Computed example of a mutant assay.
Amino acid sequence: MNNEPTGLLLAHRAMLRDLDRLAELTKSLTATKTDRKRAVAIADYITDFCDSIHHHHSAEDDVLWPVLERAAGAHVDLTELTDDHAVLDPKLSRVREGAAALKSGHTVSPELAADLADLRDTLHEHIADEERTIVPLIKQYVSDDEWNRVEAAIRKRGAKMSFEVPRILAVSTGDELAEARREGGLPVALMIKLMPLPFRRRESLVFGGSR
């Protein structure tokens, strides 16, 4: 088996990009009164981002981990990664609370900036550990058919596609986009062309000229 978990790696890539730019954005805006429209846009983006992280890690716990444990058996120990996921819940709750305060008060608190910086550091380390230990096991022990079933089961869990897809496309290479077009045909080609357009307007409001 030589299955390449491209969707997982792209999700990680999009997550790390947002972690870096959200941490930098909130640091730069700390204690500064922000225009109401932009403050609401930033808060809503942070909330969607927290929901995305939760969806990703709960899908790993509920869908991917059991498949990997069955396939790899004694070759896999997911205890540390599962413990990391449990640590994320209170961190995400604090960030959501900070986003709610930003939405109502239009000011980025020092606590929100610090919590996002902490979340960034935590997930950079966690994702590096996960890709170093889990990705080789997926390639070795999980068949293409089984991996397709994993991805299908995760899609059924109801991620917010208007948020997920444009972020994935933004971190995809030209070769990855070409492969997606080949596999998905016209519907995927139209998605790649059209879905980022409204999202870019959203990003422009949230991040300004730096995206």
Rank of each mutant, 00 (worst) to 15 (best):
V95R: 01
W65M: 06
Q140V: 05
L116H: 09
K193V: 00
T79H: 07
D18L: 06
A59F: 01
A72W: 07
C50W: 11
L25Y: 05
H85S: 02
L19S: 09
M15P: 00
R132I: 01
A43M: 00
R200G: 03
R200A: 13
F207T: 10
M15A: 08
S93A: 15
P90G: 12
A11S: 11
A159W: 08
M161Y: 10
V40T: 13
H56K: 02
G185D: 02
G7Q: 09
R132A: 09
T173A: 03
H75L: 07
V188I: 13
V206G: 05
S104P: 02
A101V: 11
G73W: 00
L177Q: 15
L22G: 08
P90I: 04
E60W: 03
D121W: 05
E97P: 06
L78G: 09
E131P: 06
H56C: 11
V188S: 04
A59Y: 00
A159G: 13
M15Y: 02
T26D: 14
Y141F: 15
V135I: 12
H54I: 10
R70H: 12
P187Q: 04
K27L: 11
R17M: 10
I192C: 02
A59N: 06
R21S: 05
V171K: 01
A159N: 10
Q140L: 06
V108H: 06
I127D: 12
R70K: 12
L186E: 12
R211S: 09
E125R: 04
R38I: 14
A114S: 12
K156W: 01
S28I: 01
S104A: 15
A23V: 14
P198R: 02
K139F: 08
M191A: 14
G73A: 14
G105A: 13
E183Q: 14
I46C: 04
A59R: 03
S143K: 06
I192L: 08
V165G: 03
R202M: 08
K193L: 08
T173P: 07
R94H: 13
R181M: 10
Y45A: 07
I168V: 07
L92H: 13
R38A: 12
S109G: 00
L16T: 13
V150L: 11
A153L: 07
R120G: 01
E176T: 11
V76T: 10
V188A: 04
L22D: 10
E183P: 03
K37Q: 11
G184C: 12
I42C: 02
R201P: 00
C50F: 10
T133K: 08
